[in-house]
Nucleic acid binder design. Structure first.
Lengths: 109, 109
DNA sequence: GCGTCTACTCTGTGATACTATGTACCAGTA
DNA sequence: TACTGGTACATAGTATCACAGAGTAGACGC
């Protein structure tokens, strides 16, 4: 995929993670694994953790510590009302952009 | 639209401009006006010029100077073979990302 | 003990869009 | 002449964000 996907993920990865969290709460390692499973093969772990810190600071998610059978305790993130609103805004923005691009692609065939 | 679109444009704006150029050659001012016309209302002029310099340095476009009836001469950009290849790669990457996101949006309804 | 998972954290770097400002050329107008 | 506004290009500085890379720490099997 090269470097294009890296830049394209800016701004969208946040929405992707929030969308995942809107289905069910999850912790960092789990989210990274999920992203890789859905095709984002070379997402860096550090990227996801940094993103989680960011959306926590923005107040879009709630955090709970759960003990783990393996390794250090997990920080489980769940989306809150503000995060839901942000996610809806994200879908609107995405819809706009995707619409423009599909239109361009259609013309260029 | 807020700040979300700003980050989302990273990585896509380059493809958008190349797609525009693949229809017909154009110059900076014209491209900016076109983008605004298609809904990207607050694209900054400086952003477009910087992007054009970048894709020129990458060798994705050819440049010709044309005198203008008004103001300084226009730098008319046209996409070349390398740019076409880059654009096709862009559409593949975009298609992948859009597919994942549509899937996520479908689940979250 | 030693290696190997799992899970989280942190620092620094590079790419990119934006802000703000400046340059230059021309037409119309008072 | 002087001023205004539209056209056209350019650039220095800033913020954001994904990535690379390295590290910390607990639990398990050998």
């Amino acid at each position: 995929m090269g470097k294009q996907i890296t830049e394209m993920l800016k701004g969208t990865l946040e929405g992707i993670v929030l969308a995942i969290l809107s289905e069910q709460p999850a912790y960092g390692y789990e989210i990274t694994a999920g992203l890789r499973g859905m095709g984002f093969a070379d997402i860096a772990e550090g990227t996801v953790y940094a993103l989680l810190v960011r959306i926590e600071l923005k107040g879009l998610v709630d955090v709970e510590k759960h003990p783990s059978e393996k390794g250090p305790p997990r920080k489980v993130y769940s989306i809150n009302a503000q995060g839901q609103a942000y996610l809806e805004e994200f879908w609107r923005t995405w819809g706009f952009l995707a619409g423009r691009l599909e239109h361009l692609r259609g013309e260029g065939n």
